[in-house]
Design a binder for these strands. Structure first.
Lengths: 209, 209
DNA sequence: CACGTAACTTGACAATGTCAAGTTCAGATG
DNA sequence: CATCTGAACTTGACATTGTCAAGTTACGTG
């Protein structure tokens, strides 16, 4: 067949579910959301056109599975950047945003799939879990900016809205020129978050964002 | 030729282009982006399945025309709210954001169509014009917050990113509970924009956002 | 009034999602 | 070890859709 590294082959293919998700992400990356079809994913995995039904039910099930995989990568990108940043809250927040942006620029169609209006988290527990984990990464990094005057939900929504909007508009090329380098304009734009106040409890020496 | 805005009936239907855009917007509102198909729009307008081709070329042409119409409504919603607001810069900015949000909540699928990644403004002059006008509305309202330290492009991108992200995430129901009333949480979230500084030249008495 | 052509119709085809029915095979059961 | 059961896939079919080619209708103009 093709790419099996598992010790045991469950049935026919090996790990078709995994293979379909992988081929789907390739299709998505190469041809945008319109290129992700059940039949093409099946063909790329070397199985018949109806094989994906058994694993995902229908097209939206496949899309949800791909979105779940996307949230894992997304979460990883954010956490990597946060870890690599200086320990100061603002530096960590900037890192989170840069991770967000890096993911968006690297996987624009995947980001779109993950945040489409019709994507329903109620139907897919794994999707809900993965997206919740991503939200937690943001919430953790936002925590030092939470205070009585600025509740967690509000602060989180502010940060999320801002970086999400910027990421989406950039991937849609809605801003004029934009070098492929996220550190260019991004730093200036993201300076809006400099204006978030640190909570009194976490008042330590902290460089501006 | 193509576009007819004449008072007389040009040929067969009357104003098929207009009728197709109208039926498309109804389909979009009722069934989401998947419900907008060439054949259904044609059927709703009472013409044969291939009639839209003559006016829009292909499906993406129809989508662009609908998006153009969307930008006009969008622009109108923002400008109405800005006009209705107090004249102070922060009140006008809050109005703009509320108009943005109102449009997003009223026409979620249309907003999605307008800002999809694959939407290309280079191919459709009317679309480019309508979207530019919407951007100008934002830029005008953002102008009092522009200074040497905060250039126009940066300030505009900050405001746009923030309100766009909030609007998109709300229409995708990404925040927990949300009453259908935009004035509920919105005011607290949008208070981030309170932190924008007024330019020295427009320093007048101004209530907080 | 004739005629050119824009506006629309009819018919066809390939791609796709989905369903129903059949086939193959891993592992449990006796 | 033989059998059986059901999961994993295949095959075939059908409706929907976008798109193209060719034909038809009727507006407006010369």
């Amino acid at each position: 067949m093709n790419s099996e590294a598992k010790p045991k082959k469950p049935h026919h293919h090996g790990d078709l579910r995994r293979a379909l998700i992988t081929s789907s992400m390739t299709l998505l990356a190469k041809g945008g959301s319109a290129a992700l079809t059940l039949r093409r994913a099946a063909a790329a995995a070397g199985v018949s056109h109806a094989a994906p039904t058994h694993h995902f039910g229908n097209l939206d099930g496949l899309r949800s599975a791909v979105a779940t995989e996307g949230f894992l990568l997304f979460c990883d990108a954010m956490e990597r950047h946060v870890q690599a940043a200086e320990p100061a809250p603002r530096a960590r927040l900037r890192g989170l945003c840069m991770g967000y942006l890096e993911f968006a620029l690297s996987h624009p169609s995947l980001l779109d799939l993950m945040f489409r209006e019709e994507r329903s988290f109620d139907k897919d527990a794994a999707l809900l879990a993965a997206s919740t984990e991503a939200y937690q990464a943001l919430a953790r990094t936002a925590a030092p900016f939470v205070s009585a005057a600025h509740p967690a939900r509000v602060t989180e929504a502010q940060i999320w809205s801002f970086i999400h909007g910027y990421a989406v508009l950039r991937t849609s090329r809605r801003f004029g020129q934009q070098a492929e380098d996220p550190s260019g304009d991004a730093a200036a734009i993201l300076s809006l978050l400099d204006r978030l106040e640190l909570a009194p409890s976490s008042q330590k020496p902290d460089a501006p964002l």
